[in-house]
Design a binder for these strands. Structure first.
Length: 468
RNA sequence: GUCCCCAUCGUCUAGUCGGCCCAGGACAACGGCCUUUCACGCCGUCAACAGCGGUUCAAAUCCGCUUGGGGACGCCA
C-alpha cells in the first residue's frame, strides 16, 4: 500500500476544541500506524475571523497533546495563486465558467426552488452564456448533467448522492479568492493526502469535492467522516453546551495522555479495551472500527481515565507535573523530596493535577492555620479524646527517629497497651492532623509533617477537645 | 421543504460470514469485602438490541416502512 498521508486542517478562528482534537488524533494515529505522514494546514482564508493568537494556541495544544506533525505547516492565505492556476485549468477545459449573477439573483433562484419543494440551488443561468472574465463575475464549476457520486466512506460505508441534488458551485469568488471547497481540493491534492478523516458535517461537501477532483482529473483520496461529539444532553457540543477548549483541560490539570486516550475511545473501539498507552493506540488504530453513530462526551469517564493515568505514571513525572499547580495555589515552590511523599499519599485520591495539589493544602499550612471541618470537629473533638491526644503528644515527642515506621510502632503500642481500639483513637487524631476525616495513612502524614508540627497540631486539637 | 447520515444499558461501547447473545466489557449508580478515615483494589446488583412488518429452521445482526435524532443545502470555513 502506498504511504499514508493524513492531515489536520483547522481554521484559526478559535482555540482547539474537543471535536477538532479528536479528528486530529484520528488522523495522527492513522499516519503513525502506517508509518505515514501527518500534515498540518491552517485554513486562514477567513480574514475577518482568523487570528494569529488562535493559530499559536492551536499549535500549542497540538504539542501539549503530543501530536507532532511532519513537514512545513501550510497556510492557505499564501497560496491564492496556486488555487487560481487550478481554476484556470478548469476554465480552459470547459469544466468551469464565468457567472455574472448577483447574490440577489441567486437568492431569488433559491427561493423559487424552495417554493417548489426542491432543494434551494443555483439554476445554471450563466452556464451556456460563454461569458468571459469581467467585473463582479465569479467562476462556477460545470457539473455533469446526470449521474451519481458514490464513495466508500471509512466510517459510514457507501454513500451515494445524485448529481441533481447539487448545483454549479462557485469555485472562485468575484474578488478572485477561491472558495473553501476549491482550496481544500487543491491543497489536499498538492499535499499528497491519501486519507482524510474529518467531521460529519463535511459529508455533504464530499460529493462536491469529488466532482472537483474528477473535473481536474485527479485521484480521489479516501474519506472517513466521524460523527460530531455530543454534549451530555445529546445536543451538539457547542460553547453553550459545555464544550471546552483543550487549553482549558490543560489548565484544570488533566494529563494529555488521558485526554488522548479518552477522545480516541470516543467513536472508536478495540474490543473491550478502555485504557491504552500511546503506543497501543498507534498499534491498534488502523482506520477500522470507527463508530458511525454520534457519541456523547462524558466528563465523568474522562476523569476516571485521568485518575487512572495519574496513578500509573512514574512518580518523578507526576511530581514534575503537579509542581506548577502547587505554586499556583500559593503553596510555594517545593523540593521534589517534599512533593514526592505528598504525591504518594494522595495520587490515588485525586482525579486531576489541580485536585491533587489542592489535597496537599492541610499538610502545607501551619498548625495554627489549619481549619477544622465543623462536622468532624464536633463529632471527634470530645473530652475523652483529649486524654489520648495528650498521651500521644508525649509519646511522639520522644519518638526517635520520627519516621513512618516508628510512628506506627508508637501508635500501635499505645492502642494495644491500653486495651483500646483504633476506632477510638484514630478519628480525633486524624481530625487534629488533617482538619477533617480524610487523607492518607496517619503515620505517613505525621512523618511528612515532622515531629514539631505533629505535636503542635495535637496540642491545638486537644484544647478544642477539652472545651468539649 | 429537499437530500444525506445515524439508531444496543443513563453514558462509552463489544457483538467476524445471521445461530455459541433470554446480549459481553467499561464509566456512573447501588450493595458488600478490605480498612486506622477517605480513596484505591476486589466481589456483586441494577440496567439496553426504538417500533412494526418481512426473509429464514434461526435476526441485535439481512430487507422494508414508521418514529426519533443529527447534518447539509453560502461568492463561510
Amino acid at each position: 500500500m502506498a504511504s499514508v498521508v493524513t492531515r489536520f486542517a483547522p481554521s484559526p478562528t478559535g482555540h482547539l476544541h474537543l471535536g477538532g482534537a479528536r479528528t486530529a488524533i484520528f488522523n495522527w494515529l492513522l499516519a503513525r500506524h502506517f508509518g505515514g505522514t501527518f500534515r498540518l494546514r491552517i485554513e486562514d482564508t477567513d480574514l475577518l475571523r482568523s487570528k494569529q493568537e488562535y493559530t499559536d494556541s492551536i499549535l500549542a495544544s497540538m504539542r501539549w497533546l503530543g501530536l507532532d506533525w511532519d513537514g512545513e505547516i501550510v497556510y492557505q492565505t499564501t497560496r491564492t495563486e496556486l488555487y487560481n492556476s487550478y481554476v484556470e485549468k478548469l476554465l480552459a477545459s470547459g469544466n468551469a465558467y464565468y457567472c455574472s449573477c448577483t447574490s440577489e439573483e441567486v437568492e431569488a433562484m433559491r427561493q423559487k426552488a424552495k417554493a417548489q419543494g426542491l432543494k434551494p440551488r443555483y439554476d445554471g443561468h450563466c452556464r451556456n452564456l460563454g461569458l468571459g472574465p469581467g467585473d463582479g463575475r465569479c467562476v462556477r464549476l460545470r457539473l455533469p448533467d446526470s449521474g451519481r457520486v458514490v464513495f466508500d466512506d471509512l466510517v459510514k460505508g457507501s454513500i451515494a448522492v445524485d448529481v441533481k441534488e447539487l448545483d454549479d458551485m462557485v469555485i472562485r469568488r468575484a474578488d478572485g479568492m477561491p472558495t473553501y471547497n476549491m482550496a481544500v481540493v487543491v491543497d489536499d491534492h498538492e499535499m499528497g493526502l491519501t486519507h482524510i478523516i474529518r467531521g460529519d458535517d463535511h459529508v455533504s461537501n464530499t460529493p462536491k469535492q469529488i466532482l472537483l477532483y474528477q473535473a481536474l482529473g485527479l485521484p480521489v483520496p479516501r474519506f472517513g467522516h466521524v460523527p460530531m461529539i455530543l454534549g451530555k444532553d445529546k445536543q451538539k457540543l457547542s460553547k453553550r453546551h459545555g464544550a471546552k477548549a483543550v487549553i482549558e483541560y490543560e489548565k484544570d490539570g488533566l494529563l494529555p495522555e488521558a485526554l488522548v486516550n479518552y477522545l480516541a475511545r470516543l467513536g472508536w473501539s478495540h474490543g473491550d479495551q478502555e485504557l491504552f498507552s500511546r503506543d497501543e493506540l498507534i498499534r491498534f488504530f488502523d482506520g477500522t472500527n470507527l463508530n458511525p453513530s454520534a457519541a456523547c462526551f462524558d466528563d465523568v469517564k474522562l476523569a476516571w481515565c485521568n485518575a487512572h493515568t495519574m496513578r500509573e505514571m512514574p512518580l518523578s513525572e507526576l511530581v514534575a507535573k503537579v509542581r506548577p499547580f502547587v505554586s499556583t495555589l500559593g503553596f510555594g515552590t517545593l523540593e521534589s523530596e517534599r512533593l514526592e511523599p505528598l504525591c504518594v499519599m494522595f495520587r490515588e485520591r485525586a482525579s486531576d493535577l489541580l485536585g491533587l495539589a489542592e489535597s496537599f493544602r492541610p499538610l502545607l499550612l501551619n498548625a495554627t492555620a489549619l481549619e477544622y471541618a465543623e462536622k468532624d470537629a464536633r463529632k471527634h473533638f470530645v473530652p475523652a479524646a483529649a486524654v489520648h491526644l495528650k498521651v500521644l503528644e508525649g509519646l511522639f515527642a520522644s519518638c526517635e527517629p520520627f519516621d513512618a515506621e516508628h510512628i506506627d510502632a508508637v501508635l500501635n503500642a499505645y492502642v494495644a497497651d491500653n486495651g483500646l481500639r483504633f476506632k477510638e483513637v484514630a478519628p480525633p487524631l486524624r481530625t487534629a492532623l488533617m482538619g477533617f476525616m480524610g487523607g492518607s495513612h496517619l503515620n505517613e502524614i505525621m512523618a511528612f509533617l515532622g515531629k514539631e508540627e505533629t505535636v503542635q497540631r495535637l496540642a491545638r486539637a486537644r484544647a478544642f477537645c477539652e472545651k468539649g
